[in-house]
Structures are given as C-alpha cells and as structure tokens.
C-alpha cells in the first residue's frame, strides 16, 4: 500500500484539504483543536435526552412514528434496527433506488426489512434524470465549498433527493420524525437532531436549484424542490434525527449487529461504501477536482474517536477500484477530459 500524499500524522486529512495547517510534528490544526473534543460529549448527552423525550411524546400517535431513509448500507441498516428494537418506533423504511445500487445491497434491503417485519417503500426516479444529474454534478460546480468537504457532489445530489422525498412522505402521512444514518464525521454536531424552516430553506437553496434547473430543466423541482403549496399547508414539520450519532460503534461492531438480520457485506462496491456502485467514481471525481478525498473528514473523525485505526482508514482511501470508475464513466457518458483538474494554489 503506497501513499504518496502528504497527510496529518494523526488523522488522514491531506495537504489539499481546505484551511489545513500542519505543525512541526506534522499534526493538523483539526486534530489540535481542543474545543471540538470537549464540546462533543455534552452535545451528545443533551441530544440523547432530547431525542428520547421527543420519541416518548410522539410514539404511537400517527400511522408511523418515523420514516427511516434506508440505503441498504451498514450505517442505515443499524439505524433501522435501532429505531425498531432499541427505540421501539413504528417505522416506514424508505429507499431511493438511484439506479446504481449494488445488486447485493438490494438483496440486503429485502432481507433486513423482512427480518424486522416493517413496511417499506422504494422510489425510483427516472434513470435518464439521475444519469444527467450525476453527470452535471461531476462536471460543474454546483455545491458550496464547505458542503464538499464532507461529501462528494454526486452523493450530495442523491441525498438531496432522498431528503426531499422523505419529507414529502412524512408530510403526507403526518410522520413526526425523519431518521437518517449519518454519523458525526459526516454531519456537524448540532445536526444530530434539527427542525428546518422550509420556507427559508427553499429560499436558501434557490441558487443551487437555479444552477441545476439551467442544466437539467424543470424536472429538478419535481425531485429536489419543495412546492409553495406544501410550505403553506404544513403546520408542523417533522424533526430530522440521526440516532447513530448517539452510538459509538466500530465498523466491525456495526457489522456484527446487523449480520443476524441477514445483512451480507457487498463485494461489488469500494472500501468506503456498502451500497452504491457510483461511490468509487464519485470519490475519483472529487479527488480530481479538489485534490483530496470526500471521506478524509469522516475517517479522520473515526480515528480521533478510536473507532478506526489510521492504517485501516488509509486502506479505505487508497482503495480505488478502476473497473468501477470506468463502468461509471461509461454509463454516465463522461470523458476524463470533462473533469476540471485541481491546481495547487
């Protein structure tokens, strides 16, 4: 395993990561920042209390207590299991089939949902639209710099549709909670649970939506937009909750928890994903455009929490299955020359 990139000696953040500075020992400013470490625990404690209170208050009132965004990956599988078994919620599991889910992940979804005995819905947007969305997200600059430190542009496009679709179902069925499987390396501390002002969110997303509409047409609103009619009608919005942030599991512990549900590790995806066949390509695009991997932040967080060794993290980052990257480029009709290249400043 050869790593030619200059990285922090404690975590795996690399020299091209925005605003990174290394001290004389090669340790990055993100690792040195004490504040973060000391506030994390108090945030989690507060969130744990608030979330159990909310569940207590709403449980059993509606047809479903929660809609769970379920990708079939290991994190969202554990989220689903915790929602049902630990928090005793009546859940509706929801999968966005983006057209690139690994066939093995699809079998996992079927087995897990059956094992938990819960209702499930799948939404499959037009493949033509999804291909075009991924293509423009790869080639153009759609999202802001900060967003892209945590996630690749293609994953962010997909997750926008997931969130938007889940919100529509939640509103339609009066479901009080939307659960997702994000962990603390992927989202900010204060997004463990949150409620959004959708009228303002809609305004806030205007420039992104305009960019996408220019490139893809009005279908963007159908998949990623919130209509004024919905905003005007809704009295109370669902609360978004990431219950996995309250747990600390190593990858092995997660897998051990979900194996009894019939979950099998897929072999047809890269080291960072356990469900999507575009992931290797998405990472490749990000590295080509910005000079670092969209997984550096998340993996570094796991290292600092002692949930992953630096070696394991490097192994994941350096796993670049070329066959999957080529498959995606061919499927999306993207040529290497169309990708903007990162230049050292």
């Amino acid at each position: 395993m050869h790593d030619s990139t200059k990285r922090c000696t404690c975590c795996v953040l690399s020299e091209n990561f925005p605003k990174i500075e290394f001290d004389e020992k090669g340790v990055c400013n993100f690792c040195r920042e004490e504040l973060y470490h000391s506030t994390e625990k108090s945030y989690i404690d507060e969130a744990t209390r608030a979330i159990s209170e909310m569940f207590e208050k709403e449980r059993g009132k509606a047809e479903y207590d929660a809609i769970v965004c379920y990708s079939g990956g290991k994190d969202s599988t554990l989220t689903l299991k915790l929602a049902v078994e630990k928090y005793k919620l009546k859940v509706l599991s929801f999968t966005l089939e983006n057209g690139f889910t690994s066939p093995e992940a699809n079998k996992n979804i079927e087995r897990v949902v059956a094992a938990l005995g819960i209702d499930h819905i799948t939404f499959r947007p037009s493949k033509k639209f999804m291909r075009e969305l991924y293509k423009v997200s790869s080639i153009y600059e759609i999202y802001n710099k900060k967003t892209l430190t945590r996630i690749s542009a293609n994953c962010n496009s997909c997750i926008s549709i997931v969130n938007n679709t889940a919100l529509k179902y939640a509103i339609e069925k009066n479901i009080p909670f939307i659960l997702s499987g994000f962990t603390l390396g992927q989202i900010p501390l204060n997004a463990i649970y949150y409620k959004t002002n959708y009228a303002f969110l809609k305004e806030s997303r205007q420039s992104t939506m305009d960019k996408l509409t220019d490139l893809l047409g009005d279908d963007v609103h159908k998949y990623m937009g919130i209509s004024d009619r919905v905003i005007e009608q809704v009295k109370t919005y669902p609360v978004n909750i990431n219950i996995l942030c309250l747990e600390s599991h190593t990858e092995k512990e997660i897998v051990d928890e979900i194996l009894p549900l019939g979950w099998v590790p897929p072999k047809d995806v890269d080291g960072c994903s356990s469900n999507c066949r575009l992931n290797a390509f998405n990472n490749y695009v990000h590295e080509t455009k910005y000079g670092y991997s969209p997984y550096e932040l998340e993996l570094s967080h796991l290292i600092r929490k002692n949930l992953l060794s630096r070696e394991e993290a490097l192994h994941k980052l350096l796993d670049q299955p070329m066959d999957q990257i080529r498959y995606a480029m061919k499927d999306l009709h993207i040529d290497e020359s169309q990708l903007p290249r990162f230049k050292v400043q």
């Binding site: 900010p188 204060n190 997303r205």
Partner: peptide, 19 residues
C-alpha cells in the same frame, strides 16, 4: 448579502449558525 446566496453556507450551515 445572504450567506447562502453568496455560497458561503448551505442549509446545514444555517443549522450550524443557529446552534
């Protein structure tokens, strides 16, 4: 100017600022 319109923050950023 709006921090969102100028591309400084995204919707998650609003939640971070509020916190």
């Amino acid at each position: 100017k709006s921090l969102v319109d100028t591309g400084i923050i995204d919707s998650m950023g609003l939640i971070e600022i509020s916190a």
